Simulated scan of single mutants.
Amino acid sequence: MKICTRCIYDDRTPSISFDEEGVCNYCKQIDSLLETYKTGTLEGEQTLFGILDEIKKKGKGKKYDCVIGVSGGTDSSYLLIKAKEWGLRPLAVHYDNTWDSSIATENIRKVTSKLKVDLYTYVIDNKEADDIFRSFLLAGVPEFDASTDIGFVQVLRSAAAKYGIKYILEGHSFMAEGISPQGKNYFDGKYIESIHKKYGRLKMKTYPNMTFFQFMKWAMVYRQQFIRPLWYISYSKPEARKILTEQTGWTYYGGHHLENRSTSFLHTVYNPQKFGIDNRNWSLSAEARTGVISREEALEIYNTPIQPDPELITYVKKRLELTDQDYDDIMKGPKRSFRDFKTYKKRFENLRPLFFILAKANLVPMSFYLKYCFPMKSDDNNS
């Protein structure tokens, strides 16, 4: 097995390649983003402060000048603290897929209360949420939690439109988290619709799906800008957790994406056991690149088997009305991917030049352009 000499991605990683020094293309992608955004430099900070000045200027006379999505996790909670430090007037927005852990719920309450930030929460009907999750298990695809990501973004954009806000701030750091490899974790609104239509039992009435038309409307008509401040400044997750704990009483939930039961099930049970996918390599590779831990430490952690919580499996079976036999059939059943269902993938590829322009203008996330607008190995003509 060939492993990158800088991070811990190996040759099982989709669309990976290595240079003559054994450095993978994903490390090179991070280098390119560092150069583009001048991350952690004075120039990067000045660029961000220029954007922040524009946000304040455009938000004059309004109750809020930006929207920040919150999950109760480290990055979004820390971004709220920074936004207040920068003199912004954020509206915190949360999409409740009804699978939040009590720690996440308390974290959101603690941080927004301490910072005196208003919270807008959209709650999907829990039976409908469960029906969508169940559909993805029956489909046999790795993106069990895709509906949460799509729903969250749609709620963010809808809340911004409702309050006349042009700027959406997102707490993502490519330095701390990396960018997921091409070929992993693909999803869009058509994908959600396609899987649910085939395997769902209830109508989608309260789920905030995002169609292609809506996606383009938010970007080109409302011209909502997606800003990721942590792409411009130095950022340390351990330091962020320390600040959050000291200033707000925020509590750590034990690992990346474990603040929600659906994402916890995805990362600790479903993907590792059914597909052999261990998504710890994203954050571990990022930590190795930035020196938070050594590459050897990262490999040691990665090679330690994940210990799933048995109670979480019981919880999933009960909520999704799965017998032990149903669950076993799903875990041992066919492995499918987004290529087996209808998606917008080919459309995104065909419109790549347009999305490059929109990404440069922050009207769509740059990570969307990098991950979704290029052909993948073994791709077909799904559209």
Score class of each variant (00 low, 15 high):
2 K>M: 11
5 T>N: 12
7 C>E: 03
8 I>K: 02
10 D>Q: 09
12 R>I: 07
21 E>D: 09
23 V>C: 05
27 C>H: 03
29 Q>A: 06
32 S>L: 11
32 S>E: 15
32 S>K: 13
35 E>L: 11
39 T>A: 13
39 T>M: 04
42 L>G: 14
43 E>G: 05
44 G>P: 04
45 E>M: 10
46 Q>L: 15
47 T>P: 03
56 K>Y: 10
56 K>M: 13
56 K>S: 11
58 K>H: 14
59 G>R: 11
66 C>I: 04
73 G>K: 04
74 T>N: 10
77 S>E: 04
79 L>D: 02
81 I>P: 00
81 I>Y: 09
83 A>P: 06
93 V>M: 01
93 V>F: 10
97 N>M: 00
100 D>F: 10
102 S>V: 05
106 E>P: 00
109 R>Q: 15
109 R>I: 12
110 K>C: 02
116 K>Q: 15
116 K>R: 15
117 V>Y: 07
123 V>E: 15
129 A>R: 01
136 F>C: 04
138 L>C: 12
140 G>F: 02
151 G>P: 02
152 F>Q: 10
158 S>L: 14
158 S>D: 14
163 Y>W: 14
166 K>W: 02
175 M>P: 01
179 I>F: 01
180 S>N: 06
180 S>Q: 07
184 K>G: 09
187 F>Q: 09
187 F>N: 01
187 F>R: 06
188 D>E: 03
188 D>I: 00
189 G>D: 01
190 K>Q: 07
191 Y>M: 10
194 S>Q: 07
195 I>M: 06
196 H>Q: 13
200 G>N: 10
211 T>N: 13
212 F>D: 02
213 F>C: 08
213 F>Q: 15
214 Q>Y: 14
216 M>P: 02
223 R>W: 13
223 R>S: 15
223 R>I: 02
223 R>A: 10
224 Q>M: 08
224 Q>R: 04
225 Q>A: 01
225 Q>E: 14
230 L>N: 04
230 L>W: 05
230 L>K: 03
238 P>Y: 14
240 A>T: 00
241 R>Y: 01
242 K>M: 03
244 L>W: 08
245 T>C: 07
246 E>Q: 09
247 Q>C: 01
252 Y>P: 12
255 G>N: 06
256 H>E: 12
256 H>F: 13
259 E>L: 02
261 R>G: 00
266 L>G: 00
268 T>D: 11
269 V>L: 12
269 V>C: 07
277 I>G: 00
277 I>N: 10
279 N>G: 00
280 R>H: 08
281 N>T: 08
282 W>A: 08
286 A>M: 00
300 E>V: 02
300 E>K: 15
305 P>A: 01
308 P>Q: 06
308 P>R: 08
312 L>W: 13
320 L>V: 08
323 T>M: 12
335 K>N: 07
341 F>S: 12
341 F>C: 01
346 K>C: 12
346 K>Y: 09
349 E>L: 11
351 L>I: 06
354 L>Y: 08
356 F>N: 09
357 I>M: 14
360 K>N: 07
361 A>N: 14
363 L>P: 00
363 L>A: 03
364 V>I: 15
368 F>L: 07
369 Y>Q: 08
370 L>N: 05
375 P>G: 03
376 M>V: 14
377 K>V: 03
378 S>G: 07
378 S>T: 09
381 N>H: 15
